[in-house]
């Protein structure tokens, strides 16, 4: 059952100031409408994980850990590895979080981040079947949301992408008699591209990128677009009630593409050894 969102109440005065600032091309934190907050990425923050990354997008903070196991493949993809993205809002991430199993927001977040990475083909899953039909790599990307200040989609996506790109996994081989055993080598995941997620929100007549929690409390609607490196779009998700005109979406994608290229440079710098 999906319930109407109960957001925190933003003071009327603050909202009015936000709207009048937008008209002048500014935001409450002095950013321009299409500016991102500083993106800070730290990789290999958890030694026990095969890959990990902590991302701070302004005050939004998430940590992604990648664990790799051998497992049986899914029935419909016997010759491919498995990739699973899961997110959890830790109870201290905001005063509005109720402890409990992942709610629709956490589930949507995980599924949209998963979609962008999967559809971009970032991890070449066909290279992750150790013994096709029997033993494949299962890659679990679990994300803990530590602090919420808006735009979880992008922060979570950057964290999972960075953790996957820097993960180091044990290499396996199949013996002559068909048994799977570790070679003792540590290798990288087969990474083909770095997908970048860009989130825009509409507040009145204005479009902003990377909304904060405060802005999300007053937005009409939201759009997350994931760009691959080969000039394609690989996932889109509209969120929140409210609507876009077709022209707004087409124009927005052009703007967002440029922004994705900027942010890809930041991510690439952070994940380079």
């Amino acid at each position: 059952m999906s319930l109407s969102r109960r957001s925190f109440v933003i003071e009327r005065l603050r909202k009015e100031r936000l709207l009048s600032l937008l008209a002048k091309g500014h935001r409450l934190d002095d950013r321009g409408l299409l500016d991102y907050r500083p993106v800070k990425i730290e990789t290999n923050v958890i030694d026990k994980a095969e890959g990990s990354a902590k991302v701070d997008l302004g005050d939004t903070s998430v940590i992604a850990g990648v664990k790799v196991e051998l497992d049986r493949p899914f029935k419909d993809t016997p010759d491919k590895g498995i990739l699973i993205v899961n997110t959890e809002f830790l109870p201290f991430a905001s005063p509005y979080i109720e402890p409990g199993p992942p709610d629709e927001n956490a589930i949507e977040l995980a599924r949209v981040v998963d979609r962008g990475i999967r559809e971009s083909g970032m991890v070449d899953l066909s290279k992750l079947a150790v013994k096709p039909g029997e033993q494949v790599y299962a890659i679990f990307a679990d994300v803990d949301v530590l602090n919420i200040d808006g735009n979880l989609f992008d922060a979570t996506s950057y964290a999972v992408v960075s953790a996957l790109a820097t993960a180091k996994i044990p290499e396996y081989e199949v013996d002559g008699d068909g048994t799977v055993k570790a070679t003792g080598n540590i290798v990288q995941l087969p990474i083909t591209t770095i997908p970048i997620s860009i989130t825009a929100a509409k507040i009145g007549d204005y479009i902003v990128f990377d909304p904060t929690e405060e802005e999300e409390a007053v937005i009409d609607t939201r759009l997350t677009i994931v760009f691959s490196e080969d000039n394609t779009l690989c996932a889109i998700q509209k969120g929140e009630p409210g609507s876009w005109t077709p022209d707004e979406i087409v124009n927005l994608i052009g703007e967002a593409d440029g922004k994705a290229r900027e942010i890809r440079e930041i991510v690439k710098r952070s994940i380079s050894p």
Partner: peptide, 30 residues
């Protein structure tokens, strides 16, 4: 889509499209 207001209220995508293909696809969806 809300036809009299020309507004999109749900938009999701998975798979890969070039910008030009996306524009055409959106038009066809409308």
């Amino acid at each position: 889509y809300m036809p009299n207001l020309n507004r999109i209220t749900l938009l999701q995508m998975d798979g890969k499209l070039l910008h030009e293909e996306f524009d055409r696809a959106l038009d066809l969806a409308v």
